[in-house]
Design a protein around this nucleic acid. Structure first.
Lengths: 207, 207
DNA sequence: CCCTTAGGATAGAACCACTATCCAGTACAC
DNA sequence: GTGTACTGGATAGTGGTTCTATCCTAAGGG
């Protein structure tokens, strides 16, 4: 497959493919001659991954390059998963972890759910986020955390089962990043719908 | 309060304040004379709102201007809430609602939870999102939707109680937008933590 | 009375993800 | 053998967004 065909197969413009090559996100094709290169199905897969991370998850070039580099360097799956979480979590984080004084509320969740007591990016992100919400005077009761974390616990098992299965590392990244993002978006939409429903009900009562 | 003082009070640069004035997001101060204007605490509040919508929720100028215009035009609360949901939901939406053939899965959720059967942006966003996930072969079981929607239902009541209370309209927007966004981010972080926990547990088993 | 500020206008800057153009070299079809 | 199409490489430009900076005149206040 030549560059032009690769472009047609993947739906990415030739100029963009060149750009990705320049940025080191797409491995160079096998140079048959000085002016001819062959691309494989792996390149198509990689392009699809890049597109999904850009379009759906909304990662930027820098973040995608980092993840792909780790994958190409043969990082272990758990490390890769952690890296994926890091970039997906960073998206909306103001990362103002101002060294909290009190015991972080996120740690309580870990105990409550009987999750293994390993420090992780997810955990510090959670703690930072809870602190942020507190600073903004948005109350997060422990009952709420209980409800939320239980629901997340219930579903995480399924996700992980899928995540540890896939054959290619590209697939792993795709599943982890896109899955995490889309589940969060799904929850956002359900929450909005629930809120709208409650608001309408209340409005009807008043009327 | 003069422009410079307003800048100091709000932490927004004078140039930016001028920009917001130009863009019609901040009402003009009371012109005492041709070259002197007075700003009030409302301006500070409004600036804080703008900052929160930009920095935390990640809305763009256009979206913020729209919301503020509605607020200033005295739109009813329910309308305002719907508008807030619309912009917050649109953030990650590919909005490729390709006119599904089958019965949308989101409608089933509405029936299941016994929510009022009102069409809303949240509902179409949910349907579109479920369709997207299906297209990407990310399975969303009805048990999962049940778990998720129940958790969201449980918490929406609390949120709405808070949302209908605040006195100023600026506060309403702030609470609704920031609240919706931060809850979604909270869920994202909990989900990541849950996934990481499950992954670690599984890894320990294998080792 | 002069320094500082206001308001208005306009231009520039910085970032990001491309996109377009140009180039010389060369394989492949005919 | 010739011409076309395509290559990698380099470099510059585009378009959108959110500011930021500069310049101007007019005028209040210590």
């Amino acid at each position: 497959m030549q560059l032009k065909e690769l472009s047609e197969h993947s739906g990415v413009s030739a100029a963009s493919i060149k750009y990705y090559l320049r940025e080191g996100m797409l491995p160079a094709g096998q140079t048959v001659h000085a002016t001819r290169a062959q691309y494989s199905a792996r390149h198509v897969e990689r392009l699809n991954l890049i597109q999904a991370l850009r379009r759906i998850v909304g990662l930027n070039i820098e973040q995608i390059r980092g993840l792909l580099k780790m994958a190409d360097d043969g990082a272990p799956r758990l490390t890769l998963l952690a890296a994926v979480q890091r970039v997906v979590l960073d998206l909306g984080a103001s990362t103002t972890s101002s060294g909290g004084v009190r015991a972080p509320a996120g740690d309580a969740v870990v105990r409550l759910r009987n999750w293994p007591d390993y420090p992780s990016d997810a955990r510090s992100a959670l703690n930072a986020h809870l602190e942020l919400m507190e600073n903004l005077n948005i109350r997060v009761s422990s009952e709420l955390l209980d409800t939320y974390s239980k629901a997340m616990d219930d579903v995480a098992g399924l996700d992980i089962a899928v995540t540890t299965a896939p054959d290619s590392v590209d697939q792993l990244i795709l599943t982890a990043a896109v899955g995490l993002h889309l589940h969060s978006q799904l929850l956002l939409k359900l929450l909005a719908l629930a809120q709208a429903s409650h608001a309408i009900r209340r409005y009807e009562q008043d009327a």
